[in-house]
Design a protein around this nucleic acid. Structure first.
Length: 520
RNA sequence: GGUGGAUUCGUCUAACGGUUAGGACUCAAGAUUUUCAUUCUUGCAAUAGGGGUUCGAUUCCCCUAUCCACUACCA
């Protein structure tokens, strides 16, 4: 068999915002495609008209774009979105709702070949059966054990089946699960798995009611038609893998059947279970890449809006359930491509850790230039009504960026560069604004004020020398100055602050402190 | 309940059957610093339990426990 071009797909369902676990699945698919010089395809699985959420598809596309994960093929690409496949676009369209006409023939083909059958049982009937079984402590399953007692083309005469197909419109096509057969499967991540078909049920493949396929049929048909070579998806699909194997076999497509890789799930940081939307609200971190406003008006926070850089988000996601085998932890998307590998994916679920996520962002924040960070900080300052300029902000950012995880932290860390303190931390006042200390502070401040050179280096040297030469206690003087300038015991070096705010602001702050602060 | 999957520090994870079980995040301590932070150093901390196989199991097999997923005319 000749080597096929690698073609993988990310196939989300537009039933809501893309979860970070979904982004990770997309990322792994993308990395795999790039590494193999293949194509990454974005397909939208919108066969569930009931659960369709407006805006979800746009959200998915925007989220991937933010991460830098661009599909090579699929709904996102202008010019490739065509309603009907043609020679130019043999795999189009990429939205399953637009592929609606394709599926029925495949389902019918399965019936014709004895791999599937028509089922006429109403939803109510099946519901009732399930409830009865439950009451008896059992579980009702539509399978080899029960299908002969139900209303379907296996139990009805040919005429009756034909009549019902023509007169009823709520029938379905179900897969006829083989009896007592062991399906042997291979997963790229989990290895060899075997399942007996007797434990499986007769899944619905196609519904007459909306003329749409269910996931299983659409998935197999589309993956085949789109020539997908590897299916990399979430662990929740592992239980239906036997069905999918059997479908490939029933269609006679085994020779081009894709290889499968099932990814473990992202778990809640505390307790157990998979990460859900609620956890983010509860624990204070985003579960979604971007902010999402549901049609109901409910808002969920996003990594982007919380101040995460996409590089950090991608990096932390990549390392959640995969590792390079080395001790390197920082990777850009491009750097990930050559080192990524399916067999270094961890089999067990990973609990998300918010602290580590922040650390990643801090690392990327530090990689940015002061200029770049200043540009990101400027809008925040403007929003606060601070009149300033980029050069000044760049200066400030250079002094405080080491302590920040996010650009949003900057204000808290640097407000005193832009505004004189209006309040003074009581503890610091108690400690350093003592009556016997004030003359020293007044004297030193006066000395600083008349300094001809207000550069950081000059201030630092002169101030230091002055304190030493006059045998003053360094700690008391410095902290007292700091209190006047900052209002608290925090921030960069005193000389840095003095040089940055300048003579005028320095004088003004010193005077204000002496005018308003009572000695402790 | 049934089927499948999973199980190494609190968390993310490393370790062709042979390591003092390594790294990162968090936390703690120390050093540096005029403050806070940064930085540096050090430390705390793990193979779920029980049986095998083996000269030797984190690693292979079985059992148990726990967790997760699936068990829809949803994906």
């Amino acid at each position: 068999m000749q080597k096929r071009e690698t073609r993988v797909r990310f196939a989300p369902s537009p039933t809501g915002p893309l979860h970070m676990g979904g982004v990770r699945t997309a990322l792994y698919n993308y990395l795999f495609a790039k590494q193999n010089g293949g194509k990454f395809i974005l397909r939208i699985e919108d066969t569930d008209s009931q659960r369709f959420v407006p805006g979800a598809e746009a959200y998915i596309i925007e989220a991937l774009r933010w991460c830098g994960i661009y599909p090579d093929e699929g709904v996102n690409l202008e010019g490739q979105v065509v309603e009907v496949a043609d020679a130019q676009h043999p795999h189009a369209p990429y939205r399953q709702s637009q592929r609606k006409p394709i599926y029925r023939q495949y389902a019918e083909q399965l019936v014709a070949n004895g791999f599937a059958y028509y089922a006429f049982d109403s939803a109510e009937d099946l519901d009732r059966l399930r409830k009865e079984a439950e009451a008896a402590g059992k579980t009702f399953t539509y399978n080899q054990a029960t299908r002969d007692t139900l209303t379907n083309s296996l139990t009805l005469s040919e005429e009756e089946t034909k009549r019902r197909l023509e007169t009823e419109n709520h029938w379905t096509i179900r897969f006829k699960m083989p009896v007592n057969r062991v399906v042997a499967m291979d997963d790229l991540i989990r290895g060899h798995i075997e399942v007996n078909t007797d434990t499986l049920d007769d899944k619905v493949l196609w519904k007459a009611a909306d003329q749409l396929p269910t996931y299983h049929l659409a998935n197999i048909v589309d993956d085949h038609l789109m020539e997908i070579t590897e299916v990399i998806r979430g662990e929740e699909w592992l239980p239906s893998l036997p069905l999918h194997y059997l479908l490939y076999e029933a269609f006679g497509w085994q020779d081009t059947q894709p290889r499968f890789a099932h990814l473990s799930l992202l778990l809640k940081p505390d307790g157990k279970g998979k990460l859900s939307k609620r956890d983010g609200d509860r624990l204070g971190f985003p579960v979604f890449p971007l902010r999402w406003e549901a049609p109901s008006g409910e808002v969920s926070r996003g990594y982007r809006e919380d101040g995460y850089y996409p590089e950090a988000f991608v990096n932390l996601l990549a390392l959640l359930g995969w590792n390079p085998g080395t001790e390197q932890e920082l990777f850009t998307l491009e750097e990930l491509v050559p080192v990524f590998s399916l067999d270094r994916i961890v089999k067990s679920g990973a609990k998300f850790n918010a602290d580590k996520a922040k650390w990643f962002n801090q690392e990327y924040l530090r990689k940015r230039s002061d200029r770049q960070l200043a540009e990101e900080f400027l809008p925040i300052l403007e929003e606060r009504g601070i009149a300033t300029n980029l050069d000044f902000v760049e200066n400030v950012v250079g002094l405080i960026k080491e302590r920040a995880h996010f650009v949003q932290d900057f204000w808290e860390l640097s407000s005193f560069f832009f505004e004189a303190p209006t309040t003074y931390d009581p503890q610091t006042v108690n400690k350093f604004w003592k009556a016997d200390n004030l003359p020293l502070l007044k004297q030193t401040a006066a000395f600083v004020q008349q300094l001809p050179d207000f550069s950081k280096a000059a201030v630092e040297e002169q101030l230091h020398n002055y304190v030493v030469e006059n045998s003053m206690p360094m700690g008391k003087v410095m902290n007292g100055l700091r209190l006047m300038l900052v209002g608290a015991s925090k921030g960069p070096g005193v000389a840095d602050i003095i040089a940055t705010i300048g003579r005028e602001a320095f004088t003004e702050r010193v005077e204000r402190a002496f005018a308003t602060l009572n000695p402790a």
